[in-house]
Simulated scan of single mutants.
Amino acid sequence: MSNSRLLTRFIQSCCNVLIRSFLRIKTSGLQPHRAFLQLEPLFKHCNGRGFSSPRKIKHTRNYTTRANTMPKDNKTKKSQSKDTPISPEVPAGPVSRDKTGCVTIAIHAKPGAKQNAVTDVSTEAVGVAIAAPPSDGEANAELVWYLSRVLELKKSQVTLDKGCKSREKVVKLSASVSPEEVLERLKKEAANS
């Protein structure tokens, strides 16, 4: 048998196995993560001259019953004792530290302004006017450049973490500065603007 015929029979065999197993999933309601356990290695069906018919495939395991699933634990939530006082949640503010220890700043971007400026510093976000249009990432690049200048950091130490296509953004600072120092510099820039 030529190599091209052998390859086409192999591809047909693979497709038939996959189609049959997905039809079995659809009709039996089998859980998707267990469906792939039914697929045997396709090379197992290879004999010396070619590939066997997909009708001859025998599956060694049958996961069609739902009795094989693990029972869920009925854990009851422990209620807090009345003796322990509940501490009020302190708002994190626009500047905080993330799990990795980097300082993050929540920013409300206002692209298309005449000049770059920190407009306001609230408890939720820092308002920043950006003198660039919100297209092709120009406003994001301008925001990173402006914040690096305001915070007196290298441009490589200021990165946009979240919100590439949104006005609500999160900027991550990889420099060794404290959140209080960053907040102080932002408030100082807001007062000057």
Rank of each mutant, 00 (worst) to 15 (best):
Ser81Met: 04
Thr65His: 14
Ala125Trp: 02
Asp161Phe: 13
Met1Thr: 12
Lys110Phe: 13
Pro134Tyr: 06
Pro111Asn: 01
Lys72Glu: 13
Asn62Cys: 15
Ile86His: 07
Asn68Trp: 03
Ser96Ala: 09
Lys188Gly: 07
Glu189Lys: 11
Lys187Thr: 04
Val144Met: 09
Glu181Pro: 00
Val171Arg: 00
Thr27Pro: 00
Pro179Val: 06
Ala132Asp: 03
Ile25Leu: 15
Gly48Met: 11
Val182Phe: 02
Leu23Ala: 10
Lys162Met: 11
Ser79Gly: 05
Ala35Asp: 11
Ser4Glu: 13
Asn62Phe: 07
Arg5Ser: 12
Thr65Phe: 06
Val118Asn: 02
Ser166Val: 00
Gly101Asp: 15
Ile57Tyr: 02
Leu173Glu: 03
Asn16Gly: 14
His108Trp: 05
Ile105Pro: 00
Trp145Pro: 00
Gly163Cys: 05
Ser87Glu: 11
Tyr146Phe: 15
Lys188Met: 06
Asn68Leu: 13
Ile105Asn: 03
Glu152Ser: 12
Pro88Trp: 01
Thr60Gly: 10
Val177Asn: 08
Val118Leu: 05
Pro54Tyr: 12
Gly48Asn: 11
Cys102Asp: 15
Lys155Asn: 12
Leu39Ala: 13
Lys188Leu: 11
Cys102Val: 00
Cys14Asn: 08
Ala141Cys: 05
Asp83Met: 02
Ser87Trp: 04
Glu180Leu: 10
Met1Lys: 10
Ser53Thr: 07
Val170Phe: 01
Thr119Ala: 05
Met1Ile: 10
Leu18Gln: 09
Asn62Trp: 05
Gly50Leu: 08
Pro41Trp: 07
Met70Val: 14
Pro71Val: 00
Asn192Asp: 08
Thr69Val: 05
Pro41Leu: 04
Ser193Asn: 12
Val118Cys: 08
Ala191Asn: 06
Leu151Lys: 07
Ala92Arg: 14
Pro91Tyr: 03
Gln31Glu: 14
Phe51Ile: 09
Asn47Glu: 11
Cys102Ser: 13
Ser79Arg: 09
Lys75Tyr: 09
Val158His: 09
Gln157Ala: 15
Thr60Val: 10
Glu124Ile: 12
Asn74Lys: 12
Glu181Leu: 06
Ser2Asp: 15
Phe43Tyr: 09
Glu138Arg: 11
Ser148Lys: 02
Cys102Arg: 08
Pro179Asn: 03
Asp83Lys: 13
Thr84Trp: 03
Ala129Asn: 13
Gly101Lys: 02
Asn192Glu: 14
Asn3Ser: 11
Gln12Asn: 14
Leu18Asp: 07
Thr119Leu: 12
Asp83Thr: 14
Ala129Gln: 13
Val95Glu: 05
Lys169Met: 06
Ala175Ser: 15
Met70His: 07
Asn74Gly: 01
Pro91Asn: 05
Arg97Tyr: 12
Asp73Pro: 07
Arg149His: 06
Lys26Cys: 12
Ser166Trp: 04
Ile107Phe: 03
Leu37Met: 08
Arg24Val: 03
Ser87Arg: 07
Pro88Cys: 02
Arg5Trp: 11
Ser193Trp: 01
Leu160Gln: 02
Thr84Lys: 10
Ala35His: 09
Lys26Met: 14
Arg34Met: 10
Arg49Met: 08
Ser53Tyr: 04
Pro88Ser: 03
Cys14Ile: 08
Ala139Ser: 06
Asn68Glu: 02
Arg20Ser: 11
Pro88Ala: 05
Leu23Ser: 06
Glu189Trp: 02
Val118Ile: 15
Asp73Trp: 05
Arg49Asp: 13
Ser21Cys: 07
Pro71Gly: 08
Arg24Trp: 08
